[in-house]
Structures are given as C-alpha cells and as structure tokens.
Amino acid sequence: MNNRNRLIQLIHVGKRELALDDDTYRALLFANGEHSSCSKMNIKQLENVLAVMEMQGFKRKGNDAQSTFKRRLSPKSGKAKHAEIDKIRAVWITMHQHGIVRDRSEAALDAYVRRMTGRGNQKAVDHVGWLDANQAYTVLEALKNWHRREVVEEMREKGWPVPMNKAGTHPAGYDAVIGEYELMLKKQDVPTSS
C-alpha cells in the first residue's frame, strides 16, 4: 500500500474511532485539508488532517500495523438513550477540566462505570451508553458527590467561601458548589486594574 492510500485508510479509521458524524468529519477535512474528501487531497493535506485527529485523541499503532485507539472521546450530547448519560459525560469532562480526573476519554469513563456497576453481585456494565435509567442515575449521583467533595476540599484549602445548606451545617448541593467554584476560578483569572 502506498503512503497516500495508507494515510487515507488511517483517516477513515480515525473517523470511526473518534465517532465523528459525517458533517463533523467533512468539516474537519475541509478545515485542515482544504477539501471535503480525502480523494482530492495531496499527501501534505492528508498528513495535516491525520495530525489534527491525533491531537483529538486518535492513536495509531506501531509503524504499518493496524491502527488502534484507546482514548475514545464522548459523542455529541443529546444522542444518549437517557438524559442522565449525557449529564454523566458532562460531569466527567468538567471533572477533568477541574483536575480531578486525569483522563477525560470515554474509555476512562467506561472504566469508572464498570467499577460502579460491578459492585456486589451485579454484572458490570462495560459502556456508559449501555446504562439503564436506574444505573445511570446511580452513577450520575456518585460522580456529582465525588466532584462536589473534591471541589469543597480545594475551596477550603484556598480559603474560598464554600456555599452552605440552609441550616448551615453542610456544604450546599452540587449545582451551588460547582457554580461558586467556577465563579472563584473566573475571578482568579481576571487581571486586576491598578
């Protein structure tokens, strides 16, 4: 197989592994290869497209061996069979942005889902998208509790105010805590005028 055909094959594998829908794929091709079809691109353009796919998490295996991909990215929201699944993915990505989880990939989230659903005598669910409504709710609540706990600890370490519940006995709910944390992060990034 010549280099050009090998690049086209890798790009097609990358499309599948990154779970790109056709419109997103064509936009990626056009933005990075100046054409919406691989067949019209030269080798340099194909290499540019492949480089962008690799920056998005696509991994090739070895030299000319079959390509592999271990860091699947989450699909677009709104495609899941339960709304909680989209929320799980959103919380997971936010936790990565906050430095709580190291790997934001779908594969890492799937590993977490397997651990959460495989407790006791339960059969583990291998992919977040396969959760039923009850499992999705349980995983979502566990993620939110973990996220809130980590954020509250960091806020206390930095001396930031932690929103409390109405009784003033415990930190407030997930949305209030994460909202305050995001606000404090934004204030930290805004330069002060002198």
Rank of each mutant, 00 (worst) to 15 (best):
M1V: 08
L7P: 04
I8T: 09
L10R: 15
V13Y: 12
G14S: 01
G14E: 03
K15V: 03
L20Y: 01
D21Q: 08
D23G: 06
T24R: 12
Y25S: 04
Y25K: 05
R26V: 05
R26H: 09
L28A: 00
A31F: 00
A31H: 08
H35G: 00
S39E: 15
S39D: 15
M41I: 07
Q45A: 07
L46I: 06
E47S: 12
E47H: 08
V49G: 00
A51V: 04
V52H: 08
V52Y: 01
V52K: 14
V52T: 14
E54F: 02
F58G: 01
R60P: 01
K61P: 01
G62H: 09
G62E: 10
S74E: 12
P75W: 03
P75A: 07
K76Q: 12
D86F: 01
K87H: 10
K87A: 13
I88C: 03
A90C: 02
V91G: 01
W92M: 03
M95T: 04
I100M: 07
V101N: 05
R102Y: 11
D103N: 12
R104G: 10
E106G: 04
A108M: 04
A111P: 03
R114F: 09
R115M: 11
R115W: 10
M116D: 09
T117K: 02
T117R: 04
R119S: 07
Q122A: 13
Q122R: 15
H127S: 11
V128F: 05
V128N: 01
V128T: 06
L131I: 00
A133H: 10
N134V: 11
N134M: 11
A136W: 03
Y137N: 14
Y137S: 15
T138K: 13
E141Q: 14
E141I: 12
N145W: 03
W146N: 14
W146V: 09
H147R: 07
R148L: 11
R149A: 15
R149C: 09
V152A: 07
V152Q: 06
E153W: 00
G159A: 08
P161M: 07
V162A: 08
P163T: 04
N165G: 06
N165F: 00
K166Q: 11
A167N: 10
T169N: 13
D175M: 09
D175C: 04
D175S: 14
V177Y: 02
E180Q: 15
E180K: 13
E180G: 08
Y181L: 08
L183Y: 13
K187N: 12
